[in-house]
Nucleic acid binder design. Sequence first.
DNA 1: CGGAAGATTGAGCGTAGTCAAACCGAGTGG
DNA 2: CCACTCGGTTTGACTACGCTCAATCTTCCG
Lengths: 227, 227
Amino acid sequence: MHTATLQTRASPQTIANVDGLDHLMASPRRLLEGETLYGEGEKCQSIYAIRSGTVKSTVTLRDGREQVMAFQIAGEILGLDGIASGRHASTVVALEETHVSAVSYADLCEMAAGNAKLQHVISRLLSREIVRDQELMLLLGCMSAEQRLAGFLLNVSRKMHERGYSASEFNLRMSRADIGSYLGMTLETVSRSFSALQKQRVLDVDKKSIRIREPEALVHAFEAQVH
Amino acid sequence: MHTATLQTRASPQTIANVDGLDHLMASPRRLLEGETLYGEGEKCQSIYAIRSGTVKSTVTLRDGREQVMAFQIAGEILGLDGIASGRHASTVVALEETHVSAVSYADLCEMAAGNAKLQHVISRLLSREIVRDQELMLLLGCMSAEQRLAGFLLNVSRKMHERGYSASEFNLRMSRADIGSYLGMTLETVSRSFSALQKQRVLDVDKKSIRIREPEALVHAFEAQVH
DNA sequence: CGGAAGATTGAGCGTAGTCAAACCGAGTGG
DNA sequence: CCACTCGGTTTGACTACGCTCAATCTTCCG
């Protein structure tokens, strides 16, 4: 049975701790808030590992609106969606000062050629991304606004915890509009859902600063039936 | 700019035409309508290529409801979401008589170890799956019921065309309830959307038999602004 | 201080969900 | 042969969740 907890469990096998991979990494690149790492349609020659910071991945719809596809933080990998076509399928923009390491895809392939373990790590990374996307599809396909926000917060909370930060207190780096785009709802509905969860004493919300008062109530809000 | 046309372009590099891969395939397995290929949580030892027929991939939500994650037809690959965790993330059920070939994942890895081309094919397959999922997320996140159905039909139409069948006339193998689950709406809304498109003379609908009268009007219905 | 950008809150409305009834075709049994 | 059921589909009436538009408030920064 699927738990629908939006979990993409931390793996002991991240791309970062494969022997020798460090040699492939160029010196980290620094991005300031608002700077673009790469744009949709650009040639995809590298994938990137986030060393620190937060980014959003977006696509531009034909009517010009920007759709947020993902938020990524330290430890996550960018650019996996570009392997299929050789061009990036999304645009990545920093939401705060962010450091990324590029890994040439060609070099990575070359190194993987003689390294079955690395091959497997790559496949798992890609597969994990598929699972992650499917969890978001579930959330978008069959949950209410408040459930979506609860799921989003639980996901952020878990990621923060995995990286050694507090699971219950953190600052969101993205705007209400970005959250709304990601979750398939308007920024007003995001704001109202925050207020509702605050009124229920589940959260303390002050702009971008979030404190989870009742983690278990938040899980409950996420899992509640959609009647 | 993202075209949001739900296209997962046919690649000349399918897993089926890599030299020597045929040897890895066990004799095809035959599934009757309603039969299960594998279940969520089962150990993932193989991936599968569909030789003929149609299946749906589903996950079971904790309240017992079944959520359709994908429909797949001949030429598509099943089981890629299980590589990350070693267990299948979804359940696959045949929607008609279907033939599939299993490829042992261990054998595939072994063969890939000395074959850079095959490695690349595998990575591209996985990456393509990510792109496909992201297109569905777009559809779920920011489109109206009628747009979703139009997008779904365009997708089916393109897949049929790629496989040498008519792009304008085909039989759907899945129920209204399955389509609704996949598109994040109720079966009643699916039915109403079909009726609306028929009233607009875009489609002829008779139960599962679909004829696209005005392909370009269907594209228009798909791309129309969501005010 | 004024302006801009982001966030919150309210009022009204529309799309899609819910509940219910009717319909249809296929299969079964009297 | 017809009555019956059963699953799937269509359609209608009502409701509600979330969108739109608008006003207000806060924070930040020139």
